[in-house]
């Protein structure tokens, strides 16, 4: 009579579906995503255009397929930068503590005091817009929150007796950090990663929405939603379908995160 972890299962199913959708989009779209056709302006959903067409007569289904690829790529790349740097900084600060830890954490406090999108806008204003600049800006801004998460986990473990025993055995500090302690923190870090992924998707969407993210004619989900707002009544499908995909993407990953947290809870 073991309780089933529905969150985790449903999350995995949704995420798989969205991931499959994304993968297909990388290799095949029914139409060229940037091909305009004046005859199809504002065409409603139909068999030939599943999601309908936009103000320039571009196929929304094709653009969504391509847009989700861009969005996911940006989110994953952002996560990779933020998480890896955050991991190293957080692990060292958490394990060693002391003055350097204090200084680094105060810097993190200062950075997190501002809304990350606002900071990203400032960074973009300096280094210019475009896909890679968005990744760089968001990635750097994600470092503090991950560093903080990793640090708190390492503080939890650094005084455990198994770490003491490892020290007495003569295990080098870096090995203690990454081989002894790190595996214990994965459940918490993974669930943090899912939250981070969702934040990255939203950050990309809001930046593109504000027109400082992905530059046209490239498609990203945020970019599309930004364009769609002008045609909310003439072509509601333009908002509905990309919006739905964003929701599914975030819901799936979010449920996986929730499922992982539930698992941890069960163990404790």
């Amino acid at each position: 009579m073991k309780k089933r972890n529905w969150y985790l299962r449903l999350g995995v199913v949704i995420t798989f579906a969205v991931a499959a959708f994304t993968l297909v989009g990388m290799f095949y779209t029914p139409y060229d995503a940037t091909q305009m056709s004046s005859a199809d302006k504002y065409a409603p959903p139909s068999l030939s255009h599943l999601f309908g067409c936009d103000q320039m007569g571009r196929d929304i289904f094709s653009r969504t397929l391509e847009g989700i690829g861009t969005t996911v790529t940006i989110a994953l790349a952002t996560l990779a930068i933020g998480f890896l740097a955050g991991l190293v900084i957080g692990a060292l600060c958490g394990y060693y503590g002391g003055l350097i830890d204090e200084i680094v954490m105060r810097i993190c406090d200062a950075v997190t005091a501002f809304p990350s999108t606002l900071l990203a806008i400032v960074v973009i204003a300096v280094i210019g817009s475009g896909k890679y600049n968005v990744i760089a800006a968001l990635g750097i801004l994600f470092i503090p929150s991950f560093a903080r998460l990793v640090r708190s986990e390492f503080i939890k473990y650094r005084d455990r007796d198994f770490v003491n025993m490892a020290k007495l055995t003569g295990v080098p500090p870096l090995r203690i950090i990454f081989v002894h302690i790190l595996p214990n923190t994965w459940p918490v870090l993974l669930s943090g990663l899912t939250i981070g992924f969702n934040n990255a998707v939203l950050a990309e969407a809001s930046m593109s929405y504000l027109g400082i993210g992905v530059t046209p004619p490239d498609a990203s989900l945020g970019r599309m939603l930004s364009e769609a707002q002008g045609y909310l009544f003439t072509a509601p499908w333009y908002t509905v379908f990309p919006g739905l995909v964003v929701i599914l993407l975030i819901l799936g990953v979010g449920m996986i995160g929730e499922g992982i947290r539930e698992r941890i809870g069960e163990k404790v």
Binding site: R160, N164, A166, L168, T169, G170, R175, H180, N184
Partner: peptide, 28 residues
Amino acid sequence: SQMVFQDSYGSLNPAKTVGWILEEPLRV
């Protein structure tokens, strides 16, 4: 020299197997 603690749960790395824990000092 080595120490054995009261709380055997805290003194054994929960993420590793018994074999790994015993081999670690030799590996190091």
